[in-house]
Write a protein that binds this DNA or RNA. Structure first.
Length: 147
DNA sequence: GCCAACGTTGGC
DNA sequence: GCCAACGTTGGC
């Protein structure tokens, strides 16, 4: 799950412990979020920064929550086409697990994995939430725990 | 700042 | 339903 560190970083999550993963306004990303289950783990990825990469680990602690900002006219995430009876956008709540001592950069990930193995490294990929194969996730986790 | 790779919008 | 124009994301 990507976040620009200027907007919300792994340090912010560490301080707050839990956060609503709101502001997702892309159907594909939303659908991936909808498929999440309580107890699932997710990597926290810093995007649009130098260097981008995986910086931490978190857990999904609540699912299928209505994203409140879609009804907030003052929010940049306001969506006038959404309605309360059938909200268009939902989100999950995540909980901090750990911040890695050394981040795993996108550059390192691209050198290690093909885009078939890891969607994240696909050229031009803009999805802010995407699934990861379990065996790849475990491999990455092992690598991160070693450093 | 550039641009690839989308996603969205709206006219038809 | 098609598609041109435009907007967004995010790496480089």
């Amino acid at each position: 799950m990507k976040s620009e560190p200027y907007a919300y970083s792994i340090k912010d999550l560490k301080n707050e412990v839990e956060t609503l993963w709101d502001g997702i306004r892309n159907y594909q990303a939303r659908n991936f979020m909808r498929s999440m289950k309580i107890g699932d783990k997710a990597f926290f990825y810093h995007s649009n920064t130098k260097p981008p990469g995986i910086v931490g680990l978190m857990e999904i602690i609540e699912t299928k929550l209505v994203d409140p900002y879609q009804f907030d006219e003052s929010s940049k995430y306001y969506d006038k086409k959404s309605n309360r009876d059938n909200p268009r956008w939902d989100c999950v709540k995540t909980k901090y697990i750990s911040e890695f001592k050394n981040m795993l950069t996108l550059n390192e990930l691209s050198e290690t994995y093909t885009s078939e193995e890891l969607t994240l490294v696909r050229k031009g990929n803009r999805l802010s939430i995407m699934p990861i194969k379990k065996e790849i996730a475990l491999e990455i986790l092992k690598k991160l725990e070693k450093n």
